[in-house]
Amino acid sequence: MSIIKTDHVSYDYIRHDEEGNIEGKTRAVSDVSLNVEPGQFIAILGHNGSGKSTLAKHINALLLPTEGTVFVDGNDTAKEENLWEVRQSAGMVFQNPDNQIIGQVVEEDVGFGPENMGVPTKEIWERVEESLKAVGMYAYRKHSPNKLSGGQKQRVSIAGVLAMHPKCIVLDEPTAMLDPNGRKEVIRAARALNDVEGVTVILITHYMEEVIYADQVFVMDEGKVVLQGTPREVFSKVELLKQLRLDVPQVTLLAYELQKAGLGLPDGILTAEELTEELDKLRKR
C-alpha cells in the first residue's frame, strides 16, 4: 500500500479585498495525482511559484485540497478525526530553521513533538537521544539553538520531526537558506534517514544536485506535474528542463553538449565518475 497518495488534487489560493469579498483565485496546484511507496526517496523539483510547497503542505494537512483527496498512510487528510494521526505519520521540515525551533535548548526542541503527542517522560528522553544521534547532533544537545550554524539548526529540526516516529518526512526546501556546507550536511542527514531508518523522504528543492540520489523525481510547473521518472530519465530531457527554467547538473549538461557535438555518450549521465568512465570507454574503442 502506498504511504502517500494524492488523487487529482487541486488547490486555489483565494484573494480577498478589504471587505472580505472574493477578489480572485489563483490555482496553485492543479490536478496532481501521485503515489509514494514506503521507503522511497522522492524529490519534487520546480522553480519558484510552481506549486511544490503548496503541494507539500497538503501532505501534513496544513492545507486541505480544494478538489480531490490526499491520503497519508490510508487516512484521508480532509477528515478532522484523522488530523493528528496524519501529522504524526507525515512530519514536516520547513525552509527557515529559525522559525521552526521552539525550544531554547536543542534537546528541549527535539522533545517538543513527543510532548505534544503525550509520550511518557522516560520515552521522550529515549526518543530525543536516538533522534539526535541519527542526525549527528547528539553532542550539541545542551546548546542553545541560536548559537548553531544553519545546517546544524536544520538537522535539529529534522531530529525534532524524527522524534515523533513518523513514517514519512517532508522536507520543504530545507537547504534554500544554507551555505554549500550546510546543504551537504542536511542532504546527508536526509539520505541517512532513508537508508538506515527506512523513513520515506520527500525532498522539495530547486537544487538539481540534491535529487540525483532520489528513487523518483517529480518536476512541477504551474501547479502540474510535467515530468516524472528516475533522475536518469528526467535529466536526459535537457531541453525540456531548460524550457522549465530549471538547471541541469553541470556534469549532465557537459555530457549533453558533448553528445550533441557528436560523441557517442549515453543519455542522462549524473556524476563526474560516470562521465569519466564513459569517456574512457570511448577512448579505448
Binding site: W84, N99, Q100, I102, E107, G111, F112, G113, N116, P120
Partner: peptide, 26 residues
C-alpha cells in the same frame, strides 16, 4: 512573518494546547 511560520511549524508537530501534553522535564 516569523510568528506565522512558527505557528505553522508548531501545528505540523502536533501542537494543540496544553491538553494531553506530557513533559520532557517534569
Amino acid at each position: 512573518r516569523r510568528a506565522n511560520d512558527l505557528a505553522m511549524a508548531m501545528e505540523a508537530r502536533c501542537y494543540r494546547g496544553g491538553e494531553g501534553r506530557t513533559k520532557m522535564k517534569p
